[in-house]
Design a protein around this nucleic acid. Sequence first.
RNA 1: GCGCCCGUAGCUCAGCUGGAUAGAGCAACGGAUUUCUAAUCCGUCGGUCGGAGGUUCGAAUCUUCCCGGGCGUACCA
Length: 649
Amino acid sequence: MDFLSELRSRLRTALISMTDSPDSFVEMLKPAQDGKFGDFQANCAMPLAKLSKRPPKDVAAELLEKLDVADLCEPPEIAGPGFINLKLKTARLAEETAKLSQDERLGITRVATPRTYIVDFSSPNVAKPMHVGHLRSTVIGNALCRVLRFLGHQVLSDNHVGDWGTQFGMIIYGYKHFRDDAAYQRDAVAELSRLYRLVNQLADYHDLVANLPKLHEQLPLKHAAIAAARQAAAAAPADKDAARLLKKSEQELIDLQAEIAAAVKKRVAVEERPELKQLADAHPKIGELARRETAKLHAGDQENKQLWDEFVPQCMAALEGMYQRFGITFDMALGESWYNPMLAGIVDELKQKQLAVISDGATCVFVEGNTAPFLVQKADGAYTYATTDLATIRHRVESLHADACLYVVDSRQSEHFQLLFATAKKFGYSQTEFRHVSFGTVLGEDRRPYKTRSGDTIGLESLLDEAIQNARKIVDANSSHLSEAERANVSVLVGMGAIIYVDLHHNRDSDYVFSWEKMLATSGDTATYNQYAYARVCGILRKGEVDAIALRAAGHSILLDTPAERALALQLNRFANAVADVAIDYRPNLLTQYLFETANCFASFYNECPVLSAEPAALKASRLLLCDATARVLKQGLSLLGIGVADQM
RNA sequence: GCGCCCGUAGCUCAGCUGGAUAGAGCAACGGAUUUCUAAUCCGUCGGUCGGAGGUUCGAAUCUUCCCGGGCGUACCA
């Protein structure tokens, strides 16, 4: 039973005669933060007392008179300034745990009013190989889909792939000029990706060669600015603005020098390789020409469209392989290209409704409170992702009847989504919940964000491979009792689990530092710890030759005489609440936290409470039931995160 | 310049619709195995919650300012 929800509901009833708005007070009933305060604590007497200007303890006492929890709890206690401490009756907890152990859904009821969710996640550029930066969206989006679905909502996952952008011009240009046919035959996607990088590098090269002199010209200006600022600061030592200006000028110089250094490095990278330099010299206008290929594609050029038709399915198939490794299937993958036919109509309509205006030749929607425009059509007539995203919203609302659209996208795009949602609202889509489920950046060990185009990002494929290889070493060291095939299987589960779990266990808002050490750790708060706990439960059931179905059906009682058993039982009953919490603000880390605590409760139980040798038979049966329920909670919970388990490891 | 986000233990992070002595993991140190997997458990050490003021009975949480960092900011997506 979800005791927290039940107690809150009882509290609400008690509060009705004491306040008009019980909601916020009901929320103040929480799991106790310390075991000595009982199992739950209600903190609402103090703020209520403030409103009525009465002593908090009097309010708490009045609340207790009205609070009917006698069937659930020991007599509540008032402590400190007016905290109400609740402790469940162990007999009732045992009863509810027995019920839980027989419930197929482990106490998680389906929501009364299911909504239709569109979850937009992963969304890579099909022309480029996926890298670490794609991990979070993929993993968080998948977890949210699974959780929402399990709660009974209708969920449509959508991979909004980038299949229509400027990168295709680069690939087409590269294909026309630089392709290696043999390589293309062997592995088309790898060759396309090489071509993309090559064209990008050459275009960059010409840009920076053109730009470097300008950067150098700025150097003396920056020096002069610093000198001036230094003088001003010296003249007025107390002037904070002057000091700040000096600091800023110095920083600008450092930034400029870094920019120059980076540019020089890139230039050298091309010039020190004669074959690259030769290509660069032979294609001086490569950037512009690549853009022109994109424009031709968009304009319906036959040759380019044909190439695009040839490339995209191969790219999608390659992505598919990646998603299989994560166990992800999308309900749809409607990329940018799919919305292309609707873009002109969107812009027309925006103009008709007088939402969009022409500014500097571009068609823009201006949203109050934002200086940046929402740019739906460029001066050259091309549409932007703003336009595509509006078309996407139209489809999701009008054809898919979405109640909520979640965008699992990097927090750096928050401004875009703010504008998008505001524009959608103006457009008339005001009944739908739009939510940017944003997440922080994956940082390098130097605490600098990974730069997409710096060239040395870690490919996702190799990341997964390395995690699995590493897991294999650990499995080999620990699991001589497993067969070769079993070890291979466990290595995949452990390696993939490690990566997924590390990502999900962070609050999604935070940036986090990518480190191999953490990615591959198997102790502490990790997927492996949870998987291992699961395997240990399975070990007990296996060794005891327990038929789980029969065990559940037998109707044994649960006995909770030791602290470890009681704590585990209480924890198992919290499962429903933990899963529901994930859906409130789309935070999977709440579930990893819950699962770790559960596995931890089990490990303590495992240490202190023998199962198979327990006497009498009723105690053994009770402990077996606890084991079985724990295993199912762990397996189900991990599965909601996209992480698998093995019976033995 | 403007906007958004962040600063919590040596490290990586929870906690942030205000609530009792601020929690984990890692690292360090010390214990636990005749018993179901030690990929484990138990314990110890470790914090002016960036700084200062304000609101409050009560602030890591709300507010103002300051310091430090990240990101975004009109034709890339």
